[in-house]
Design a protein around this nucleic acid. Structure first.
Lengths: 168, 168
DNA sequence: CTTGAATCCTACTTGATCGATAGGATATGC
DNA sequence: GCATATCCTATCGATCAAGTAGGATTCAAG
């Protein structure tokens, strides 16, 4: 699950809109509230508008507000609006993959992984994310022991080791 | 959860090695077994070797085999070896993020999403992925109604709509 | 009816990354 | 020493991400 800078900014902006809902707020005010470049925020708000997640008004006193109540928009929707599908395998949807031989069962695994991601991002509303009152299933995930630590064994930095590991 | 071409090929190769474990197989044979470019497979096998997931032998009768039994290597490990961390937010680990204002609770959400991905990819071994006998929790995810369908509402293709949606 | 504040649109730049490919150096068994 | 492998370095084109720039358009207030 890779979240781009655009995705991260989109969620931060959406959360800011959620806490002040249904007030109309300008792109500049949203950007400075979260410490983002103003023009970048403008581009992202354009994506959110085209996805029908925010509504906009031009001119003085103009700005943006959520198109629905913050309890009726999920974080997953916001991410999809700016980054496209939550899960892709080689640029294709999980269910569109197909393999032969030893990998015939892989599509089921890709679909399961996507379902797992959805079970978090599509089940948490902007309101819940703003208040921190997550659904029980989600809260349980963050309470696990190892959830807050990177999983080692082959961390990214070790990939350029010069050592080799021949058989026996 | 984005799986690159490298990640997909790495898993397919690992599954091929898993089904013939512990036989030693050449890069060329692995590539043709899964219909992959031979040189590409070589690069990927180099990554898997440096991550200690496969062992190699040079010369005639040389090739690759899994460094551990296929029941003791997870799909997640294979993906990390070639693509780096399973989950990142703007290039950082979920637990390394930090926000102010309306987004203070976001790190918990990122961590939960990562935990969800791990609960699938780190819980399925190469052996399970090869046989299709997934753990119960994972199998339940693939059995859900909507798991095999894309989630609409803001599909990728609709992002370039020219229409605007002003307030009121 | 002008002015200023805001959205909105198009284009651009810069750098990184991805998906390969090429050629050759090195090791191994027969 | 020869065939077959791994292994290393370098390269390539295409794509994309992140952010910038400038201006056209819209609207309310004075």
């Amino acid at each position: 699950m890779q979240v781009s800078a655009r995705g991260e900014c989109a969620v931060r902006i959406a959360l800011t809109l959620a806490t002040d809902h249904p007030r109309t707020i300008s792109a500049g005010a949203l950007a400075s509230a979260q410490g983002l470049p103003g023009k970048f925020a403008e581009v992202i708000l354009g994506d959110l508008r085209r996805a029908h997640l925010v509504a906009s008004a031009r001119g003085v006193e103009g700005g943006y507000r959520l198109a629905r109540g913050p309890e009726r928009i999920s974080v997953g929707e916001v991410l999809r609006a700016v980054d496209g599908p939550l899960s892709e395998v080689r640029g294709r949807r999980p269910e569109e993959t197909s393999y032969e031989g030893a990998a015939v069962n892989l599509p089921r695994l890709w679909v399961a992984a996507r379902a797992a991601v959805r079970s978090v991002l599509d089940e948490v509303s902007l309101e819940q994310a703003a208040t921190g009152e997550f659904p029980v299933r989600v809260a349980e995930l963050t309470a696990q022991e190892g959830a807050w630590f990177p999983r080692l064994g082959c961390a990214a930095g070790t990939r350029d080791l010069k050592s080799t590991y021949p058989i026996e």
